[in-house]
Structure formats: structure tokens, C-alpha cells
Design a protein around this nucleic acid. Structure first.
Lengths: 363, 363
DNA sequence: CACATATGGGCCGAGGAGGGT
DNA sequence: GACCCTCCTCGGCCCATATGT
């Protein structure tokens, strides 16, 4: 490890050798693109640079090159309190991996949802980030214009209903729910319920998954029942009451109120956390899972692997999306806006990960 | 929102007004520290800057001020696969909050443990970060010297056994375990076991907690038994076998092999994840928690709130530590090394968070 | 000669065009 | 033509000087 004490600059190297700093610069940053520097000089410079422990000054490089090699990420505030931001963390794993490969640094804003987007825009703009991720947002937000106006390349990761001009990677919510229904049907289930978010303020993902449930039942000619949109009929949940506790309670009430041969044999839940609570409450109330009730969730986070029984879930390729998004962003940065001004939209499919909460329905 | 198209510089503003860029600079970055600029000029400049949507160029500022207003964070690779890095995420919540207050940006390296420290040092040095967090590390690591040599101010967050010269915030592992024992004793427990990491490659935290368990029993004159360092007697866990599954299996075997009146009535687990698995396996094998067996863990992550029964746990003030660490780092940056070259060491205590897995022992 | 106010220009550290030998 | 150098640029900071009253 080279001893690092005083900052070494190009000039220092040049003086040490007795040449101009231009040559040094030439050698040091395109050692491949041979721009007429003699072999002797080139080797001398490289050696001295190493000895002196030279590291180019990043601010200076950014200034001269008009590139910061930094990408920004903005996460719009989520209505639900982030569960330690587990969900976003997976996306960032993919982003950071690609950033390392491409030698970008990453600046994350609003990871914990307490900043207004105007403030983030200010910072992004000030920092002159080369590109921007919009993480887990969706089309139609009023603040998007502000970001677009900056002229900074943008890509949406896990971005539903994208505007035509922005690049976006979208999770196939509809396909995921359909896949869940198909999995259950293949096991022999017919009466399938759905447990989502109850009441007002439904986020787009929630809406999409709920609608997809209805559509899938219709498409596959399965029996439908208003009550199977569990809890919805009971209306919004009062303030101060825990959403998970209350939906579990209502669900259990409903199940008790219906004779076994009319009861749903499986429940699709909006996400893992919902499944986790539902399963635990079912079991505490004498229902065996999956013997008495099947459960399948969407997202396949690590929660599914931690609970006994382990939860069957529809995968969400968040890490792959983050990874891919980074390369798309790089492409935008290097090649600018395409002539037709059309963004690239990619749809990411979901696959069923079979664990222990689904099986054939009780006869 | 101001339309942002072309980058506005100080010169642009100066030209627009017909003054020198020096005045503009003076006004724009210490509008309070009145350095002889006429009120008229000052107002004019501020107004025009606003109209033109001026944002100082960050790279340029950094270059001139020799300050990047960026802090780096390094997380040494952990031997266990990070559970979505939940643990570190909590620390970063505190760090990021303070960074916002102090107007620092944060660059995180190695969040997912795939970078070598040499590489991170390179990047940190290149980026000229103003200061550096060492997250969840501990004293005595061979790579520390490399970081110290850079001369960048350093603070350890959740840093055990700190070297005297570095600033460090340390979690009171010993006190946490002692607190757990005291809680159990206050409920009437006497035979208390400990479930930690089994076998070689024990991380410092694990070692500290294990030793603290032994010390606490001794100190409080509680009965001791080699078997109560659960699983240790059975030796290392073979490769390819899941650590949690295997420790649960061994623990259950042990419990079955001992008559009820000699059996421990409570188990302290190394962390939440261990508690989670243990509890689920106990319950699946006919033990009621806490009726037949009490469990208390350390860390109090959100897992404790998610499982039924909810887990009693010793809190770990990770967020507060991250927050405080940032201010300590800022202090180092602004005031340099103290004359005695002694770091500040702060010890953070743990408190018991009582939930549903502890109660009085079965009579 | 003070004093308030504005300006010129060098500096930070690198990139790179164009000219000279 | 091979090789190296001079000089200006990026954008903001700030000290040392004007200029005016």
C-alpha cells in the first residue's frame, strides 16, 4: 500500500520528471489510445505516478470533463412506512452491482421518505448527476415534469404505467396475479379469494394487482364472489387501528361465517407482509396452513423463507431490474435521447416459487 | 419551478447585470456575512440569480474549497450473508438523517459485501470524501491502517473494541446480555441457556455476547451448565447444512434429553433471526412459547414485531448511533485531530423491550 | 486619509487543442 | 511524422488592488 500523505498532482509528477503536465495527463488517462508519446517517456511517467501514489482529483476531473460519474436515485415517499426499506434495498443491490461494473457512484435521496421532491431535485441538479433513477414510482406523478426539465437522463425502475418518453422497467403485476391463480388452479383450487389493501388511498401496485385478480378469475371462468375481495365490503379501516391486525380479524370473521363448502380454499395476498400476518393469525385461530387454507403472496422477499411454514410466493425480479436499469441509463447518458424520443419499456415477468403454504385443497 | 435548460454560471449572471463575477460570488455564498456589498447590488444579484435559476457547480466548488461535502461509508464484508442488510439499514437511517441536516452527501461502499477494502480505499481516496464511517466493524482489523494513512477523519459506528486513536460508538454487548439475564431473573427464572453461533469463525459480537452470558451468570450466582451454551458441545456445523435448522434441531434434542426440572426455562439468543427460528421450531415441536420455554433475543429489529408471539428483545440503538456518529465526524472534519490524539469513545446501552416471549416460568 | 464598494486575476487540478522542433 | 510543450478551458473562490466620496 502506497503511503498517502500529501496530495500528488499532475504538476508534481511533471516537475519530478522534468516534463510538461500535458504529457503526463495524456499518458495517464488513455494509456491505450496511443497519442504519440515515446515509449520511454510513457514508462517513466507511469512508474513515477505509481511511486508517488498519484490519484486524479475527482472534482477537477468532473469539472474538466463535464461528467460526474455519479448517478442519483430518487424514491418517492411511500404511503406505507417502509419496512426497513427491504423492498428498495433489493433493487439497489442490482443497481450498485452494475454501478461498480460501470464505475459510477451512487447518490441516494429520500431512502427514508422524509424529503420533498423539490429538495431532491435541487440536490441532484447541484450535484450534476449524470443520470437519475426513479425507484418504485409510477407514471402520472405531478413531480415528474420537474425532473424531466432538468434534462438529466432518467430511467424508472419498478415503474408502472410509464409515460412514453421515459425509459422504464415495469413489473408485470397482472401476470404475477394470473400466475398465482394458475398455480392454485393447477393444484385443484376453484374458490380463490384476494386480500389486499383495504379502503381509500390505494397505491397503483395495489390497484393493479386487485384488478388483475378479478380479470384472471373472469378469464379462467372461476367462480366469483364480492366477499372474496376480502374485507373490502367492510369499508375503510379506522385510524389508529393496525391494518394487518384488522384485516386478519375481518378475514377470520368472514371465514367463520361461511359454511366450509362455500368457503374459499385459497387466498392470494397483495404482498409478503400481508401473507405473513394472515398465516400467523390463521394458525393461531386453529386453521392449518395449507391443510385448511392455502396462501400465496406476491414479491417473494426473504420473509417468505423465514416463516414456518415457508410461504409460496410470486417472484419479483427486483435485483435484475435494478441491474438492467443501470445499463439502460448508461446508454442514455452516452447516446443521448433517441431521435424518435421514445423511451424503452421492458416488462419483467413473475414466476411462482413453490414452498409450503400451497397444496391440493382439502377434499 | 424554474425552467432549467442551459447551465447558468456566475459569469452569466455578472454579464447580465454588468458587474464582475467576484461580487456575484461574494453575495451568493455568504449573504449573511456582510462583506461590503451595497444593498442595491446585493438585491439585484439575488434577484437575477433566482430568475436565471442559478445553481453553483458542485465540482467547481469542491475544487476551489477543497471540500467535497461528501462522506463515505465502508462496511467490511460480513461472514454471514446479509439478511437484505436490514441491520446496517437502520444505522444508515440515522446517518442519512444527520447528513441531511448538515448538508453532506453520502457515498456507501460495499453495502453488499463484494468489494475488497483496497478497492474501497481507492475509491474513497479518489473521491476525496471529507470523512469516513466504518460501519459495524471492530478494532484490530489489518485493513484499518490503510484507511488511517489516508488522513481522512474516521469514525466507527457500532464498532467494538476500538483503537484509542479513532472515534467510535460502541454497543454495550455485555450490558445487553446482562440486561436480558436480569429481566429473566426478575420474572423468576434461574436456569437460563444461551444460543449463539456454533463452531469456528466467531465474529467479535458473537464472542462478546457469549462471554457476557457466562459472566452474567457468574456474577448473579445463577446455576451454570456446559450444555446451556446450547449446541456448542456438539461441535461445528457441517458445510451445506443450514445453521439455523441445525441449531434448532440440536437444541430440541437436548431439551428432550433432560428431565423437566433440570431443563432451562429460558433461552437467550444471539440475535433476532436466531430467536425467530428457534421459536418457530419450538412451537412446531409442541413447546408453547413462553409457557414451556421463554425466549429473549438481542437487537430488537422489526422481526420481533412481526412474528406471533412477538419477541421480547434487547434494544440496539443503531439509528441513534448513526445519527450521533455523523456529528462526531463533522466535528473531526471541522476541528481536526485533538492535540492528545485520543479518540472519543461512547458506549451505547441496551434496554429490554418486553413483548410476548417472556413471562414467569412454568411452576 | 479613511471608508465603503467593486474589480482583476490567480488559484484549485485536470483535459485537450494546436503549435513548435 | 514523431514527440513534447504552451496555453486556454471548466466554474467558483478570494486576495490584492483599484475607484470614488
Amino acid at each position: 500500500m502506497t503511503q498517502i500523505t500529501k496530495k500528488v498532482t499532475l504538476k508534481d509528477i511533471a516537475q519530478q520528471i522534468g516534463c510538461s503536465k500535458a504529457v503526463v495527463s495524456t499518458v495517464l488517462n488513455r494509456s491505450k489510445g496511443n497519442t504519440g508519446v515515446s515509449k520511454g517517456m510513457r514508462e517513466k511517467i507511469e512508474q513515477v505516478a505509481l511511486e508517488m501514489g498519484y490519484r486524479p482529483n475527482f472534482s477537477s476531473q468532473s469539472l474538466a470533463r463535464q461528467r460526474t460519474m455519479t448517478l442519483g436515485a430518487y424514491i418517492p415517499p411511500q404511503p406505507w412506512g417502509s419496512i426497513g426499506s427491504t423492498y428498495e434495498t433489493v433493487i439497489f443491490r442490482g443497481i450498485e452491482k452494475a454501478c461498480q461494473e460501470l464505475d459510477y457512484d451512487l447518490l441516494v435521496f429520500n431512502r427514508f421518505g422524509d424529503l420533498r421532491h423539490e429538495h431532491c431535485m435541487e440536490k441532484l441538479y447541484q450535484r450534476r448527476v449524470d443520470g437519475l433513477f426513479l425507484v418504485h414510482a409510477h407514471g402520472g406523478c405531478d413531480w415528474l415534469d420537474g425532473f424531466l426539465k432538468t434534462g438529466v437522463p432518467i430511467v424508472g425502475v419498478d415503474y408502472s404505467n410509464p409515460e412514453p418518453q421515459v425509459d422504464a422497467l415495469t413489473f408485470d403485476n397482472t401476470g404475477a396475479i394470473k400466475g398465482a391463480v394458475e398455480h392454485l388452479v393447477s393444484l385443484g383450487h376453484q374458490r380463490i379469494a384476494y386480500l389486499g389493501q383495504v379502503g381509500h388511498r390505494m397505491v397503483l401496485d395495489q390497484q393493479l394487482r386487485r384488478d388483475a385478480y378479478i380479470a384472471a378469475l373472469k378469464q379462467m371462468n372461476l367462480p366469483m364472489n364480492d366477499d372474496w375481495l376480502l374485507c373490502e365490503i367492510d369499508g375503510p379501516i379506522p385510524k389508529g387501528v393496525d391494518h394487518y391486525d384488522e384485516t386478519s380479524r375481518r378475514t377470520l370473521n368472514y371465514l367463520r361465517s361461511v359454511p366450509a363448502d362455500q368457503r374459499p380454499t385459497a387466498i392470494i395476498t397483495f404482498n409478503d407482509r400481508t401473507a405473513l400476518n394472515l398465516i400467523q393469525d390463521l394458525m393461531q385461530n386453529g386453521y392449518e396452513v395449507p391443510a385448511d387454507m392455502n396462501v400465496i403472496s406476491v414479491d417473494d422477499s426473504y420473509l417468505c423463507r423465514v416463516l414456518r411454514p415457508r410461504i409460496t410466493s410470486m417472484s419479483h425480479p427486483l435485483e435484475a431490474m435494478g441491474y438492467r436499469a443501470t445499463y439502460m441509463l448508461q446508454n442514455r447518458i452516452e447516446n443521448g435521447v433517441p431521435e424518435d424520443n421514445q423511451g424503452i419499456h421492458e416488462l419483467y415477468p413473475s414466476e411462482v416459487v413453490i414452498r409450503q403454504t400451497t397444496s391440493t385443497p382439502r377434499k
